[in-house]
Write a protein that binds this DNA or RNA. Structure first.
Lengths: 127, 127, 127, 127
DNA sequence: GTGGTCTAGACCACT
DNA sequence: GTGGTCTAGACCACG
């Protein structure tokens, strides 16, 4: 389910991009599944079709979906392909934060404990 | 020394904010030191004084500096205070990345190793 | 055999046009051979009959096939006629690319070598 | 000078992209030169600012220009960088046409002569 | 009905 | 005044 948060500072079209990526990663959208048509999704989210169009165009540029005039937009990336892309990206953020904390004199052990704590948490919001 | 990268995508006023924070953390600016006057810094960096003003205003809002009308702006936070603020912020980023990686099925052990690896690196360019 | 690639960005009707031309050039379709009826081809390719209709209409407009109401569509151009049409078209593309490369300061000799290289390659998949 | 042909089938935003690339290649736009502001160019060409915006966004995505909120858009690629990009692209078109002509039984010598003819032409439309 | 392009006009963040 | 985002609504090519 694609949802947007109107209060977020993140542009709507980026929220849609992230939402679609998440839906693929969670397996809700499978390769070659059709995405909601631009106009329909615009209706559902009560936003302008152009905004959806912009999000879909960017997703296509990233090779995650493919669109055909008059035929709809479809999932192009497999789950694993996308997961690899995402992992590389999040790892970069993780390392960056780690490096900054190291420079702030945070002891290694504190980060390790922090990681352990994250993994001890129960499945977060099963929702 | 406050420097800005004109080609960076980051807004100039944010670059100034980060620059001042870094100068405090590194000890270059001490509590109650005077910051460069708005006009002079605007001259030095060849940018609009309003931009400096905006950066100083945001720093004051965050309690990191204090200004006295007609007498300039001064460092308000001590090194340790600022470090705590920074740490809290970076920890949030660290945890966020960790949570996302957990959801991407990355094993806990891989994150721990990653942390250890970061800490084994030699002191990176003390600069 | 007319085939279409559903994932291609090229419109289906254009793919059909190209497919028919290729079949004539390769000799698979001879002058006055009957083309597959619109409805049957639509069934075989699992696409909309209107799409086939559009392709056949364009082929007729180009003088490559002719249709008789209620009696089907037939190959109108001979192999050599079509080859001449194709050649003229591809020559235009070739000259255009050549002119652009000249403007990009590519030396004449480099283009000549490139042509020679293309002709030295073994017959590529006779298919 | 950026111009557009309203009768062309090519989308306006693509015409602008090509136009900017050409201006860089010809040296009219140099690295770090400022491009015409979105609104001004929209006025000059009598088209919608959004269309310019779309063209600039794509040029930025391709690394050819860089834009900064409130500061304008600037040429990012050097002449030679862009020329290399263009050359690779046009060479691909050239080879493709050459290959098709080979398959159409055009003799190698005819292509070579064609290339030679292109290079014997005087500087076309000195304009 | 589908995506792609374009217009007209607005608001925001930044300088 | 600058680029970036968004809305409302239109037209086109395609199926």
């Amino acid at each position: 389910m694609i949802v947007i948060d109107n209060k977020s500072r993140k542009p709507i079209y980026e929220q849609i991009i992230d939402s679609v990526k998440t839906l693929i990663i969670t397996g809700a959208y499978q390769r070659d599944d059709q995405l909601p048509p631009v106009r329909q999704l615009a209706m559902d989210l009560a936003i302008n079709p152009n905004t959806i169009q912009k999000a879909y165009a960017e997703l296509e540029r990233q090779g995650i979906i493919y669109s055909m005039k008059g035929r709809g937009s479809y999932v192009g990336s497999s789950l694993t392909e996308l997961q690899e892309m995402q992992k590389a990206h999040v790892f970069a953020k993780f390392d960056q934060a780690g490096r900054e904390l190291k420079q702030l004199q945070v002891p290694e052990q504190e980060l390790v404990q922090r990681v352990q704590h994250l993994y001890q948490l129960e499945q977060e919001e099963p929702q």
